[in-house]
Amino acid sequence: MDKKVNLSEYIHPKTEILFVALNVPENSNKNAHWFTNNLSFWNLLFRSGIITQPILNKLEGDETVFGCTKINFKNWSIGVTDLNRKIVKAKSINVEVTSKDVKRIMDILKIREVSKLCLMHSKVGEAFRNFASEIQFNSNRYRKIGQWKNTEIFEVPFHNASIADKEKYYTMLIQKYGSVNKKGE
């Protein structure tokens, strides 16, 4: 039996970055705070420049970054949700996503002003490529992968993935037009 989702979304009327993770993890659901297994997500945001001060308490990161704008890059409004809001699981391999999950995110884009949609897991990127037929995707992985109206769409590695130099992909979220460094990486 699935557990009730206790983790509130942060979706603002105007959002510079909307992070879309895969599903509600058990630990975060239990304490009703985002990214609370460790500080890796918050450290990654700090190293990439998305936030200007480190988060020291993992139970305060979501309210500090998603709930207000004080330490965010250029005081940007940053939001977060999960692609699958029904399943509470620790292991992503056990999470299934459907076209309805992608449609829910697309409906958010239709009524909210989102500058950059950030897909934070390979399963989330795959779901969008499979079910968001109104978006033309390029072959990129871990950078800008598409555009829908005024929303740039990025795929980034999950914060605890064993991908080297993850912050360079997150840094693209605060660069104009999702540009990359001078070498084109």
Rank of each mutant, 00 (worst) to 15 (best):
M1P: 12
K3G: 07
N6T: 07
L7T: 04
L7V: 06
E9F: 06
Y10Q: 06
I11V: 15
H12G: 03
E16W: 01
E16A: 11
E16F: 08
F19P: 00
V20M: 06
A21H: 12
V24E: 08
V24N: 12
S28I: 01
S28K: 02
N31V: 12
H33K: 13
H33I: 02
W34L: 03
T36C: 10
T36Y: 05
N37Y: 13
F41R: 01
N43I: 01
L44S: 00
L45V: 03
F46W: 09
R47K: 10
T52R: 11
N57Y: 08
N57P: 00
N57H: 09
K58L: 09
L59W: 08
L59G: 06
E60V: 02
E63I: 08
T64V: 09
T64F: 02
V65I: 10
F66N: 00
F66D: 04
G67V: 00
G67L: 00
C68S: 09
C68V: 01
T69H: 07
T69I: 00
K70N: 08
I71R: 06
I71L: 07
N72T: 04
N72G: 00
S77F: 01
S77W: 00
G79N: 03
V80H: 04
T81S: 09
D82Y: 04
D82H: 09
K86E: 14
I87T: 15
V88Y: 05
V88I: 12
K89Y: 13
A90V: 11
S92C: 09
I93K: 13
I93W: 10
N94S: 15
N94H: 15
V97P: 05
S99Y: 12
K100Q: 14
K100D: 14
D101G: 06
V102E: 07
K103F: 11
I105Q: 04
D107Y: 07
D107N: 15
I108C: 09
I111R: 15
I111S: 15
S115N: 15
L117W: 03
C118D: 03
S122Q: 15
K123M: 10
K123D: 13
V124W: 05
V124T: 08
G125I: 03
E126Q: 15
E126T: 15
F128K: 02
R129P: 05
R129A: 04
N130R: 15
N130A: 15
F131G: 05
A132K: 07
A132Q: 08
A132R: 07
E134H: 08
Q136T: 13
Q136S: 13
S139R: 13
S139M: 10
R141C: 05
R141Y: 10
R143G: 14
R143D: 13
K144Y: 06
I145M: 04
G146K: 01
G146E: 00
T151W: 09
T151H: 09
I153N: 01
F154R: 02
V156C: 05
F158R: 06
F158L: 00
F158M: 06
H159S: 13
N160S: 14
I163Q: 08
A164S: 11
K166H: 05
K166E: 04
E167I: 02
K168Q: 12
Y170M: 00
T171M: 10
M172K: 13
K176M: 09
Y177S: 11
G178D: 06
S179G: 12
S179W: 10
V180L: 12
N181S: 12
N181C: 11
K182E: 13
K183G: 05
G184E: 10
G184I: 04
E185P: 01
E185Y: 14
E185R: 12
